[in-house]
């Protein structure tokens, strides 16, 4: 266990840890924004938008994440799209997670009685106002529990980015392995780091749930 504090190992571990957090946070932000937008598309009265939302979910939710990373990292540069490895990873992970976020939000929207939206529309609210002022705030509470699962899975999914030149936690593990340290010691620390992140996310969502429980 002590290897972590030898040589520059801690710096490498710390950088990987921070990179994982950065990658996860950016992907989570993208997933949340894009997922909400996609959910709005999927319930919108415009058929083209509905089709787009459905297509996105079908494509991204049903494709292995590793394949998505491949597609983004090696598919975009030939099309003239050049970003850093981190940005590519954020696009792949964010786009993938957005499809899950979309479905979670859509299920939340479906729990809000139709009459709420009808009342909003009968007051003259636009589709966007109906969604953001009336439906989504009421969907938020039911959505929190499944949403926390999505966002706990996200940092763990981010480990795949390690295979695509992002120096995150899992790629730090590879370096340690190559340096010949005990595999159990390495995985102990890596697991601790992921556990810390997941537990933080879970605690955050539990906090949100208790806050929103008071409203109503």
């Amino acid at each position: 266990m002590g290897f972590l504090f030898e040589q520059d190992n801690f710096a490498l571990f710390r950088d990987g840890f921070l990179q994982t957090i950065e990658l996860s946070a950016l992907s989570a932000l993208l997933a949340l924004l894009l997922g909400t937008l996609l959910a709005a598309f999927r319930v919108s009265p415009v058929p083209v938008l509905r089709a787009f939302g459905t297509a996105w979910v079908t494509l991204f939710r049903n494709t292995p994440l590793t394949l998505l990373f491949f597609a983004v990292t090696f598919g975009l540069p030939p099309l003239g799209v050049h970003f850093s490895h981190l940005v590519f990873a954020v696009l792949a992970l964010g786009g993938y997670t957005a499809s899950f976020v979309c479905e979670v939000i859509r299920s939340g929207i479906n729990t809000v009685p139709l009459g709420q939206a009808e009342a909003a529309r009968s007051l003259g609210m636009t589709f966007g106002q109906t969604l953001t002022l009336v439906v989504l705030p009421q969907a938020a509470r039911t959505v929190l529990a499944p949403m926390s699962s999505v966002f706990i899975a996200l940092p763990r999914n981010s480990a795949i980015a390690g295979a695509f030149s992002v120096g995150e936690l899992y790629s730090a593990q590879q370096t340690f392995s190559e340096r010949g340290y005990s595999i159990f010691a390495i995985f102990f620390w890596v697991a601790c780091a992921y556990l810390l992140i997941s537990a933080t996310v879970a605690t955050f969502f539990r906090f949100l749930e208790s806050r929103l429980a008071v409203v109503r």
């Binding site: 009685p113 009459g115 709420q116 009342a119 529309r121 003259g124 106002q129």
Partner: peptide, 30 residues
């Protein structure tokens, strides 16, 4: 629709808003 008021069988008041806010929101937002 803003010119046509509607009252529903099941009230359909906005459950996450106070009574006052229910009556305010349309005026302010629409």
């Amino acid at each position: 629709r803003a010119e046509v008021g509607m009252v529903f069988q099941s009230f359909n008041l906005f459950a996450h808003k106070t009574v006052l806010e229910n009556v305010v929101i349309g005026q302010v937002k629409v």
